[in-house]
Design a protein around this nucleic acid. Structure first.
Length: 464
RNA sequence: GGUGGGUUGGCCGAGAGGCGAGGCAACGGACUGCAAAUCCGUCUACACGGGUUCAAAUCCCGUACCCACCUCCA
C-alpha cells in the first residue's frame, strides 16, 4: 500500500514518494508567538502530528521541523501596547504554546528553530537572491530589500494564480517597490518607532527579517535544499508559501515536493480571529473537557475539512471517546500493542482519512463489546488492536502522557477509591438484604459527588 | 476582479456513479431488583433547477447562499 497525500501544488491526491527511501523531512509553519493559542491554532499542530505518527507507524524515519516566528509587526505592536519588551511577549507566548501542544500530546518536533536565531542564514539567502537578480534593495533609502516578483516567471504557481490578476495590497504604500506585489525580504529599522533590540546588522543596514524569508532559510538549514513535505494552515498558501517557494527556487533550491494545508476551525462560520473572545483559548476549553477529548474532537474530522467549533459537538466527541475507553477498561485492556487492521491502514493511507480510521476503531469497539458480552477471550486481542490504532492518532488512553498525574492527584484518587469502596460495600450489603431503597440512597449520594456506579458481574465499578 | 473550498438526516461528521461510514441524541427490545454499561433492532439525508446514465449525494450545465486567501492570520 502506498501512502497518498493531497498536494496543494497540484490540487490532487498523489502517491507519496520521499526523496530518500525510508526518510521523510517535514517542515511545518508554526505560530507567530503574539497571543495565547486558541483551538484553531493547535489544530494545525495536531493534524501534522497525526501525519508524523502515521509515517512513523509505517516505519519511516521522520525529521520534523516546526518553526516559531518570534519577531514581526504584530509582536512589536502588541508588546508596545502592553508596555513590555517584545522578546518578553514572544517568549511568554511561546511557553503558553508549548503548554498547549504538550497538553494535547503533540510530539515535540525534531527541532524548533526561531526566526531571531537565524538572521545570518536569512542574510545569506537574500544576498544570493540579489546576486541572481531576483531581489533588490529599495531605492528610497528605507533599508528594505524586496523580492522582484516580475523576475520570477513561475510566481503564483503554487496557488494557481496569475500575477496580473492579483489585487495589489489595499494599504498599497508602494514604498520603494518596483511592483506593488513585490514583498519584503528585509525590513529596514525605523528608529523612531521600533526598539533597537528588534534590529540586526546586515549589508543593507540594521533591520529585521521579512516573514517569508525565515522559513526558506530555516527549512534549507535543517532539511536541505530539497525536502519532502511543507505544511501549514490554508491561509498560509498565499502569500506566505507562495513567496517561500518563489524565494527558495529563485535561489536555486528545489524546496518542498509536497504542500499540505489544514483547514480552519471556525466559529459561527467564520475564522476564529474575527469573533473570538478568550473563551476558545486552549486552557479555557480544557476546563470543559479533558485534553485527550479535545484531541479526539480535532482528529475525528478530516484535516482538510473546516470544523465548525461548538461546545455541544465537543461534548459529543468526549462521549464518543469515553465509549472507546470504557471498552478498553472492561476488556482489561492494557495489553501490549496489537495489529493495525487493514481497514484502518487503508483509511490512513488515503490522505490521512482519520474519519474512516475512527470508524474502524468504533467497529472494533462494537465487535469487542460483543465478544465481552459472549465471554469470548478474543476481546483482549480486539482491545489491543484498538489501542494500537488509537496510539497512531495520539489517543491511546494508556499513554502515560495523559495521566499527567502529579503524585498528589494520584494520592487523591487512591483516597477517593477507598472511600467509595466503603460506601459500595454498604450498598452491596443492602442489596443482598433486598433493601433496595437503602442501596439506591447510597448510589444517589455517590452520584451527587459526580461519581457513576456500574454493576458488573465482577462487582460494582465507579468512575467520575 | 482573480484563486481555492463549502451547502449531507434531530446534531456532529464521512463518502465521490450502484452496495445506507462512524459517533451523539431519540425510540423499541434483551440484560438488571431498578439503573448504568453493553448487545440487538428502528427512524430522519444529500442547497435548488435542469441534463448525462440502466443507475447520480457522487459526473455535466446553470442558480442561490456561505467561507477563505489576494503581501507579514493556523
Amino acid at each position: 500500500m502506498t501512502l497518498r497525500l493531497y498536494d496543494t501544488a497540484t490540487g490532487e491526491v498523489r502517491d507519496f514518494q520521499p526523496l530518500r527511501e525510508g526518510e521523510v523531512g517535514i517542515y511545518v509553519c508554526g505560530l507567530t508567538v503574539q497571543s495565547e493559542p486558541h483551538v484553531g491554532h493547535v489544530r494545525s499542530a495536531v493534524n501534522f502530528d497525526v501525519l508524523r505518527r502515521w509515517l512513523l507507524a509505517r516505519g519511516e524515519k521522520v525529521t520534523f521541523i516546526r518553526n516559531i516566528t518570534d519577531i514581526d509587526d504584530k509582536i512589536l505592536l502588541k508588546s508596545a501596547a502592553q508596555n513590555r519588551p517584545w522578546f518578553n511577549l514572544a517568549y511568554d507566548m511561546k511557553r503558553e504554546l508549548d503548554k498547549a501542544y504538550d497538553a494535547l500530546n503533540v510530539l515535540p518536533p525534531t527541532y524548533e528553530p526561531a526566526a531571531t536565531g537565524h538572521v545570518p542564514e536569512m542574510v545569506e539567502l537574500i544576498e544570493a537572491l540579489i546576486e541572481r537578480g531576483h531581489a533588490y534593495p529599495a531605492g528610497d533609502g528605507s533599508g528594505d530589500v524586496y523580492f522582484d516578483v516580475r523576475s520570477w516567471p513561475s510566481y503564483g504557481e503554487l496557488t494557481h494564480q496569475n500575477v496580473d490578476d492579483m489585487e495589489a495590497a489595499a494599504d498599497a504604500d508602494p514604498r520603494g517597490k518596483k511592483d506593488p506585489r513585490d514583498f519584503a525580504l528585509w525590513k529596514g529599522w525605523k528608529p523612531e518607532s521600533e526598539p533597537a533590540t528588534a534590529s540586526w546588522p546586515s549589508p543593507w543596514g540594521r533591520g529585521r527579517p521579512g516573514w517569508h524569508i525565515e522559513c526558506s532559510a530555516m527549512a534549507g538549514k535543517y532539511l536541505g535544499e530539497a525536502f519532502d513535505i511543507h505544511g501549514g494552515g490554508v491561509d498560509l498558501r498565499f502569500p506566505h508559501h507562495e513567496n517561500e517557494q518563489a524565494q527558495s527556487r529563485a535561489a536555486g533550491h528545489p524546496f518542498a515536493s509536497y504542500w499540505m494545508h489544514n483547514a480552519w476551525i471556525t466559529t459561527s462560520g467564520e475564522k476564529m480571529s474575527k469573533s473570538l473572545g478568550n473563551s476558545l483559548v486552549v486552557p479555557e476549553v480544557l476546563k470543559q473537557v479533558r485534553p485527550v477529548e479535545l484531541r479526539y474532537y480535532m482528529v475525528a474530522a478530516h484535516y482538510r475539512s473546516t470544523v465548525e467549533f461548538s461546545f455541544e459537538a465537543l461534548g459529543e466527541a468526549a462521549t464518543s471517546y469515553r465509549r472507546i475507553e470504557n471498552f478498553l477498561e472492561r476488556a482489561g485492556g492494557f495489553a501490549e500493542s496489537g495489529e493495525l487492521p487493514a481497514e484502518f491502514a487503508e483509511a490512513m493511507d488515503d490522505d490521512l482519512g482519520t474519519p474512516a480510521a475512527m470508524a474502524a476503531i468504533h467497529n472494533a469497539v462494537r465487535e469487542g463489546n460483543k465478544q465481552l458480552a459472549e465471554g469470548d477471550v478474543g476481546a483482549v486481542v480486539t482491545a489491543s488492536n484498538v489501542r494500537r490504532m488509537l496510539a497512531v492518532l495520539g489517543l491511546d488512553p494508556a499513554d502515560p502522557h495523559w495521566a499527567a498525574g502529579s503524585g498528589a492527584a494520584e494520592g487523591l484518587s487512591n483516597a477517593v477509591d477507598v472511600l467509595v469502596r466503603a460506601l459500595l460495600d454498604q450498598r452491596q450489603a443492602a442489596r443482598a438484604a433486598k433493601d433496595f431503597a437503602a442501596a439506591d440512597a447510597i448510589r444517589d449520594r455517590i452520584a451527587e459527588a459526580g461519581i457513576e456506579i456500574e454493576d458488573t458481574p465482577e462487582g460494582p465499578r465507579w468512575s467520575i
